[in-house]
Each structure stands twice: as structure tokens, then as C-alpha cells.
């Protein structure tokens, strides 16, 4: 049985309409800037072509060791956030002892100025929920982040409603462990990706090959003429400062997204340009389109 294309598109529209209507949404301010993540793959999967500012977003870790990566992703999201203003960061005292507190000089590298941060130490999930809701309802913050304690469904629902009203987005960095029910609009899971060193500036094309052989390189660097992605210096353990550490690679999974398409991506965050770039499946750092094209021509 086949359906006419028009029927399908009609159904799609109907579904979209239902999905868009479901959260009671206040009319967005005129000129409210969008919260784009800057990578087509990510933004395309989200319902409004970007993250919603009037919603709760939940970031969790794949394993307990990925806490730093999840923090990094969250900081990247905040750095992409188009509005100035203070960010309220609530962390449980326990979590702070375990994983450390936010450190200003390091935050700057992620594009998030430390002086915009107001930090709160909480002791219980109840306090966390209260502090976050106060933050969201005060409407004078850019965003509210809660970290380290599990919130129950009611708390997340309240936060999400408050966020819908005031347009202060709410982000949760969930503690490691089984995922609790949540009213979050999007749920992300972040894990660390092994990261291979790259040269800060790409070598000119057709320079020759061979240099790339000293580290396990993905396919791209091996083809004829593919030497355009030279990986010189990769085997050297002690490089000059800040090589390789100016990018962060994540494995991002969008587990749930109302009105969007869940998916999974490997992305690199560039500390200089404050943008996400896709990593090729094999772990390469370059844009895959250019070398792939040249290889096809050469072949």
C-alpha cells in the first residue's frame, strides 16, 4: 500500500503542529535571538533549528569518567548562548569535592567568562530544585545550571514550566547513574572520544605524504594527494603549548528531543572560534567534504 506524497506531507504537518503545540508556550519575544549550536548536523536535529531557550535541557554522562566532557559540552552550549548576563551554577558540595569546582582561568578557554558566573553550593536535591527555580523565575539571568544531584520528575516539570514562562533556559548536568524520568525537552548523553593530535595549520596541498605515517591515521590521510591533511608532529609527546588542547572532541547522543530527531554525532569544539565541527567517523578533525572531493578527483 502506498500513500500519496501529499497525504504524507499533510500527516507530517499535522504531527508537527501537535508536537509544537504540546508545551504551552508563551509567545517568544520579538527579536529573541536563536540559540544555534553552529553545526548543521546538530541544529538540524533540533525542532527549531537550534536549542530552545524556553526549556529544560538535560546532559548526562555515558560513564562516571565523562563528567569533564559533559561539563565541557555544557560550557560550549553556554558559550553559544546569544544573550549576555549572569549564569547561576548550582553544584552540590559533594560533587564539588569529587569532581572539583569550576575554575575561572580554564573557563575562559571555553569561551565563557568566569565573571558571569554566580556559584551556589547546595546540599540536597530539594535545595537544588529550589535554587534553580528561583534563578529561572527571577528572569534576570542568562541561564541556570544545576549539577550533581538527581531531580525528581516534578522538579524538572516545574523548572521546565518556569523556563517556558521567563525564557531563561535551564540546564541540568545529571549525576552518573541510571537516568531518572525527566520533563526535559532535550536529553543529551556525552562521552569522551580519543583525540589525536593535529597540526594547528593545515599544510599546503600536494606536499607529499609519509609524514602522516607515524600515528594511526584515518583513511583520509592515506590516499594519493590526500597528504593535504598532514599530521606532522603527532608522535611527539612533548609539544609546544596548547597544541591539540585547543579543541575538544565529544561523542554526543541526543537521546530524546520533543519535535526533533534523536541522533548521535562526533563533534569537536573549537576553543578559538567557539563552534562545533563534525568529526569524521574515523576520528579525523578536518572537514570531511574537501579531502573526500579531492580524492574522488584523483582516483
Amino acid at each position: 500500500m502506498t500513500l500519496a506524497a501529499s497525504t504524507v506531507s499533510q500527516l507530517r504537518k499535522a504531527i508537527e503542529a501537535v508536537e509544537r503545540r504540546s508545551p504551552p508556550r508563551a509567545a517568544p519575544d520579538v527579536g529573541e535571538p536563536e540559540w544555534f549550536l553552529g553545526a548543521r548536523a546538530l541544529d538540524g536535529a533540533l525542532p527549531e533549528g537550534g536549542l530552545s531557550r524556553r526549556a529544560l535541557h538535560d546532559v548526562s554522562v555515558a560513564s562516571p569518567g565523562d563528567g569533564a566532557a559533559a561539563t565541557g559540552f555544557l560550557l560550549a552550549l553556554l558559550a553559544r548562548f546569544p544573550r549576555d548576563g549572569d549564569v547561576l551554577w548550582c553544584q552540590s558540595a559533594m560533587n564539588r569535592r569529587e569532581y572539583g569546582g569550576l575554575y575561572g582561568p580554564g573557563l575562559e578557554g571555553f569561551g565563557f567568562p568566569a565573571e558571569r558566573l554566580v556559584q551556589v553550593s547546595v546540599r540536597s536535591g530539594k535545595e537544588l530544585a529550589w535554587a534553580m527555580e528561583e534563578g529561572v523565575r527571577s528572569a534576570s539571568l542568562a541561564a541556570v545550571v544545576g549539577e550533581g544531584l538527581a531531580l525528581d520528575f516534578t522538579a524538572t516539570r516545574r523548572l521546565s514550566l518556569a523556563s517556558t514562562e521567563t525564557a531563561v533556559p535551564c540546564l541540568i548536568l545529571a549525576p552518573p547513574g541510571p537516568m531518572a524520568a525527566s520533563a526535559a525537552m532535550t536529553r543529551w548523553r556525552v562521552s569522551t572520544v580519543p583525540q589525536f593530535p593535529t597540526t594547528p595549520t593545515p599544510a599546503p596541498p600536494h606536499k607529499g605524504e609519509g609524514k602522516a605515517a607515524d600515528i594511526p591515521l584515518p583513511l583520509v590521510g592515506r590516499g594519493r594527494g590526500g597528504g593535504s591533511v598532514s599530521k606532522g608532529g603527532g608522535g611527539d609527546m612533548t609539544q609546544s603549548y596548547a597544541t591539540g588542547f585547543e579543541r575538544t572532541a565529544f561523542h554526543l547522543e541526543l537521546l530524546r528531543c520533543r519535535g526533533g530527531r534523536p541522533g548521535s554525532w562526533r563533534m569537536a569544539w573549537d576553543h578559538e572560534t567557539h563552534s562545533f565541527h563534525p568529526l569524521s567517523p574515523a576520528g579525523d578533525r578536518e572537514f570531511p567534504s574537501q579531502p573526500a572531493l579531492s580524492r574522488r578527483k584523483a582516483g
Binding site: E115, Q119, V122, E127, A131, E134, G135, S140
Partner: peptide, 22 residues
């Protein structure tokens, strides 16, 4: 001012040593 009001509320409920900036 909105932030200051918020800070007051958090501070009076949780205690002044539990909310800070760096």
C-alpha cells in the same frame, strides 16, 4: 538588580557562605 535580588534570596535561605562569585 534582578540578580542582586536573587542573590539575596539564595543567601538568606542557604547562608552567605554558600553563594559566591570568583
Amino acid at each position: 538588580e534582578g540578580v542582586a535580588i536573587l542573590v539575596d534570596r539564595l543567601m538568606n535561605r542557604l547562608g552567605p557562605e554558600r553563594i559566591w562569585r570568583a
